[in-house]
């Protein structure tokens, strides 16, 4: 029934830790021009989570297809595979208390090895790869672990400044246990000099925060003569213990 029914854990029902909005990019980051007209300007309405924010749907492992976590093959013609540097991306989803989170739905998307997206809005010169779609998904195991196989995405130019390039990156959508944990972010690659030129990455005010989005080359997890590996951990909002919470009526 639920991701947690496989374990002996009681479902947690506490409210989530307050979000540290100074750690995230602010809504308005003028160097990323599209944010200018799409950033709310009025104060947010703050309130402690109600059940509407604490609760969230559960996605079971049964929904996954065999190749969902293999972007090298999930769009490829039979017997063929995507072009590019073969990599494994793996890591864990943790909450702010450091606990591994099982049952988290991760959905990822990316450009191909040449930096081109399979999308009608992308008109970059680099060609499409007929064997690469660019999407995949996984659900974390008991310890919060996940892994998928793909090709390293290429950097690409984008219309913002006269000459802006996105660093190589993989987009991640993360679905935790409560709807208030919902998060979309991007994973960057260790050693990529473009990260520090990127108006989107640098919309995050704190350099230490940007560094938490940079996956490390993980030689111990490589598959010799097949694929290199990058390790990328993701942290979602922690939740308060409900031990001392006021009980909802009817509990």
């Amino acid at each position: 029934m639920s991701a947690e029914s496989g374990s002996n854990r009681r479902p947690e029902t506490g409210a989530f830790f307050q979000r540290d909005r100074t750690w995230h990019p602010p809504a308005l980051t003028p160097n990323y021009k599209t944010s200018i007209l799409r950033s709310p300007q009025k104060a947010l309405l703050a309130f402690d989570n109600t059940l509407s924010e604490i609760s969230g749907p559960v996605f079971g492992h049964a929904m996954l297809g065999e190749l969902d976590a293999d972007l090298i093959h999930n769009f490829a013609r039979p017997g063929e595979s995507a072009l590019g540097e073969r990599i494994i991306v793996h890591g864990r989803v943790l909450d702010e208390r450091g606990a591994g989170m099982p049952g988290v739905l991760l959905e990822f998307w990316q450009a191909n090895a040449g930096g081109r997206y399979r999308h009608k809005k992308d008109g970059y010169l680099a060609p499409l790869d007929p064997n690469f779609g660019g999407c995949g998904r996984a659900i974390t195991g008991e310890d919060g672990g996940y892994a998928f196989r793909t090709v390293k995405p290429g950097p690409y130019p984008w219309p913002n400044g006269p000459n802006d390039w996105r660093p190589s990156h993989i987009h991640f959508s993360v679905f935790g246990h409560g709807f208030a944990q919902r998060l979309i972010t991007q994973m960057y690659f260790e050693g990529d000099p473009l990260i520090w030129h990127c108006p989107i990455a640098r919309g995050i005010p704190d350099k230490a925060a940007i560094e938490t989005l940079i996956a490390a080359l993980d030689m111990q997890a490589t598959i010799p003569f097949d694929a290199r590996a990058y390790k990328f951990d993701i942290v979602l909002r922690g939740r308060r213990s409900s031990l001392f919470e006021n009980r909802l009526e009817g509990n």
């Binding site: 779609g133 660019g134 959508s173």
Partner: peptide, 20 residues
């Protein structure tokens, strides 16, 4: 305590990942 992973925009190609 760990810090929540900072958010980044879903970008113009969010459909590829979420509604392929």
């Amino acid at each position: 305590r760990l810090k929540e992973s900072p958010s980044q925009t879903a970008g113009p190609y969010v459909h590829i990942g979420l509604t392929p």
